[in-house]
Write a protein that binds this DNA or RNA. Sequence first.
DNA 1: ATTGACGTTGACGTTAACGTAAAGCAAGCG
DNA 2: CGCTTGCTTTACGTTAACGTCAACGTCAAT
Lengths: 125, 125
Amino acid sequence: MENKFSISDLASEFQVTTRTIRFYEEKGLLTPVRRGSVRLYGPRERVKLKLILRGRRLGFSLDESRDIIEMYDPESENVKQLQSLLEKIHEKQGQLEAQKKEVNSMLKDLKIAEKNCLDAISHPG
Amino acid sequence: MENKFSISDLASEFQVTTRTIRFYEEKGLLTPVRRGSVRLYGPRERVKLKLILRGRRLGFSLDESRDIIEMYDPESENVKQLQSLLEKIHEKQGQLEAQKKEVNSMLKDLKIAEKNCLDAISHPG
DNA sequence: ATTGACGTTGACGTTAACGTAAAGCAAGCG
DNA sequence: CGCTTGCTTTACGTTAACGTCAACGTCAAT
């Protein structure tokens, strides 16, 4: 069975528990296929999980990750919907640019802290 | 009273509730001075709050923000401690660089999503 | 002197994002 | 055949980060 993953395949690949993956399904973020009662994950679901976890590392809520997934994988072909989706995309892009700036600010501040620390070590008293 | 802020000064400046600020104090992240029973915040405490909130926007936990504050505002002059602090600083710098990369990845993906969206709008069917 | 804005300390409530434990099915292996 | 391993559902528990009262003090202004 190429191309299909079990729940524990994904769990060990991404270092999360199976509980977490099922939880994301409960919340409607993942929709694996079933063979009997057993979940099977295709590449599409794998990508979704990847997106959720990347979002998690960036401090996103599951609802935000849900939005991100929708941007990747639009449910509608309706032009109206696609345009509002486009707006959401632009908004998210703005947020991410802002986040980058905050990361950079913190990096700057850490450089200062590093310098202060080095000074205090080499130049005690 | 230049240089000193009330709790609601800070609350309105940073758009958080006073409850939030007191909560950070409960957790040991802020240590305002008291005039009687009333809290007074100097510039140092103001900076700490700023750091906490920036951390929050980046998805940091309060414990992580506590670390960040410690990096800015070391409690010890002990060289041993300063060196371990320095290691923490470097570790955090690494994490932030990683986070920047993730933000960039997501921005790239959003560009693709944007393009797909635009194509689907202008070029329907 | 009372009102109203602002402050205080508890104490309990809430939400998100899972963890954990119970109980059971299904397949493969010795 | 029984055992182990991996999967399932159901359900209750947990933690962080606050929100939301309640009950009270205090100071300036009307």
